[in-house]
Design a protein around this nucleic acid. Structure first.
Length: 573
DNA sequence: ATAGGGTTAG
């Protein structure tokens, strides 16, 4: 008979697998080896069916190790990987001793489920069964910690490894990049090269991701150069990451050049990345053009493509186009998720069409999330709609929001109407709760080094110079009629202190440092983790005029290019 | 008890 492997290769559907199974049973060859192979194929291949595999499994009187492994391996790659952990426990109870493969599969499940606690359990089993020197197991364990955000434990596993190959470096670099430690990721990337290891496609993906987050253009260019030399631009994932990196570093033309000159076929992610790149620049027209071109070139738009164009319409204030696209989704058979609703609510809200936005929130088929109500609240504040602001705030309260910004927005709505009693009430509610505020920070590159500033930062090496520069800026822009817009300040403090708190926002510190430490002819480029604040927006516009510098700020959602006193967002954001 | 296990883009 043909070997089991070639028979399985021919199975392209569950019914074929069942046919093969019957055939094996009839010919009396459904024995341990072919059976476990069939189970594994059935549990893990796309042609198979995990529940059918478990059905066969349950009929086995005393399943052996490879049969357990097949099911655990299959469970590990489902959307519910914790089931693999449950089965692993059952396996031990059934006194079947796990082997290295069992540990590998269950650790993969832990990594995917972000189950650090369980991962640690398995780690001790690995120790007990004597698989400690298994590099593949160590790498997966490293990945468990890295994915779960326990980067110190990940580092410990890494340091204790006897052999460190490219893959384990990749896991750590990628983990650092995804775990909000992109600077450390780049550090490790350099370290790896120093250690004489040659980065591969996965390594550069991690490095590019770190560059994207930091807006680290120098480092990004360097990685791109390496990619070209190594001819990695025939890998679509690498190209997509490069496009994203250039886009997030503000070089949308370079992103487009890569998009147009890649040595491989574009996939849906490629198009979506480029559409989103244009959206972030506020270039709604080009984003829509690309969306149309994508259709003409035979690529079917998916829900992310729609999110991209909706976002583009949003940033460009193209309300009618956005609404039209949102409505066309059903016709195109693309399902809407909460983000699409969020986007269109934002679009309408910013255009002052609050009632329509509110109606959409009420009619949407899924439960509106916090972000949606926050969007509506923000729009209500912009248009001074007290009633709508109260509705949104009530919802946010019901949903247990403890975000500082929500309280501040409502209090600002009341303050604008001089309803001081209500302002006081909101402030009290804020104090009585454990209100959370995400710390704002900004990055700027100078002299090849990435500098990070947090709000009110006083730890920078050049802090004295920076604060003197801020005083100078303050003096010079006040001559141009600047007045601090203190309603942006979140604390219940005196006016003078408010002005101070505003004045030490991370983006202002970064821009001030940029004026000190970067070439006068170059643009100042800053990246911020949150959205830019209104006062900073006013101030940076004035700085661009008074100091005659182009300043580019990438905030959480888009780019702001300040030049000669104006911003590319045309104050619509 | 024979071809099984680690990282990856928007």
């Amino acid at each position: 008979m043909e070997p089991i492997y070639s028979l399985l290769r021919k199975c392209t559907s569950l019914s074929r697998i069942k046919q093969l199974q019957s055939h094996l049973i009839i010919t009396g060859s459904f024995n341990y080896f072919p059976r476990s192979k069939l189970l594994d194929f059935c549990a893990t291949s796309p042609a198979g069916d995990l529940s059918y595999a478990t059905y066969i499994f349950r009929q086995l009187p005393s399943p052996a190790i490879n049969e357990w492994n097949a099911i655990i391996r299959g469970l590990a790659i489902t959307p519910q990987p914790t089931n693999a952990i449950t089965w692993f426990v059952s396996m031990s109870r059934a006194s079947c001793k796990p082997d290295a493969l069992t540990c590998s599969f269950v650790l993969k499940a832990c990594a995917r489920a972000l189950a650090v606690f369980e991962g640690r359990e398995v780690q001790s089993q690995v120790l007990r069964y004597g698989f400690v020197f298994d590099v593949l197991l160590q790498t997966t364990l490293l990945d468990v910690y890295a994915k779960s955000g326990d980067l110190d434990s990940a580092r410990k596993v890494f340091d204790e490894m006897s052999v460190r190959d490219v893959t384990c470096w990749n896991v750590l670099i990628y983990g650092l990049a995804q775990g909000s430690r992109p600077s450390d990721a780049l550090e490790m990337y350099k370290e790896m090269e120093i250690n004489g290891l040659r980065p591969n496609e996965v390594t550069v993906l991690g490095a590019l991701s770190a560059c994207s987050q930091l807006g680290a253009i120098r480092e990004g260019e360097r990685v791109f150069e390496f990619i070209r030399v190594e001819k990695m631009d025939c890998n679509v994932q690498v190209c997509n990451a490069v496009i994203d990196m250039f886009a997030k570093c503000g070089l949308v033309d370079k992103a487009f050049w890569v998009f147009s000159n890649m040595n491989c076929k574009k996939c849906i992610v490629t198009w979506n990345t480029m559409i989103m790149a244009l959206a972030m620049q506020g270039d709604g027209v080009k984003a829509l053009e690309l969306f149309d071109r994508m259709g003409r070139e035979g690529m079917v738009a998916d829900s992310v493509s729609y999110l991209g164009v909706l976002c583009a319409c949003n940033h460009a204030g193209m309300v009618e186009d956005g609404v039209r696209l949102f409505e066309s989704m059903a016709k195109s058979g693309v399902s809407r998720n909460v983000k699409h609703y969020g986007s269109v609510v934002d679009l309408l809200g910013r255009a002052g069409r609050l009632q329509e936005a509110y109606d959409i929130v009420n009619e949407m088929p899924m439960v509106p999330d916090l972000v949606l109500w926050q969007t509506l609240l923000g729009a209500s504040k912009t248009y001074g709609n007290v009633e709508m602001a109260e509705k949104a705030s009530r919802k946010l309260e019901e949903m247990g929001s403890s975000s500082c910004g929500d309280f501040v927005l409502l209090s600002n709505v009341y303050a604008a109407q001089e309803r001081w009693k209500d302002v006081g009430r909101v402030r009290e509610a804020m104090k009585s709760r454990d209100v959370k505020k995400i710390p704002g920070f900004s990055y700027i590159e100078a002299g090849g080094v990435m500098h990070k500033f947090v709000n009110g930062d006083r730890r920078h090496l050049f802090q004295d110079q920076i604060y003197r520069k801020l005083d100078e800026i303050s003096f010079r822009i006040k001559e141009h009629g600047y007045m601090a817009e203190t309603s942006y300040v979140l604390h219940d403090i005196g006016e003078g202190e408010k002005e101070n708190a505003l004045w030490h926002h991370s983006e202002k510190l970064a821009v001030a440092y940029g004026l000190i430490a970067t070439d006068e002819k170059s643009a100042i480029q800053v990246n911020k983790n949150l959205r830019i604040c209104g006062d900073c927006h006013v101030v940076i516009k004035l700085i661009s005029k008074v100091y005659d510098r182009e300043i580019i700020v990438r905030d959480r959602t888009r780019f702001h290019r300040f030049k000669e006193g104006c911003c590319s967002c045309r104050d619509y954001w």
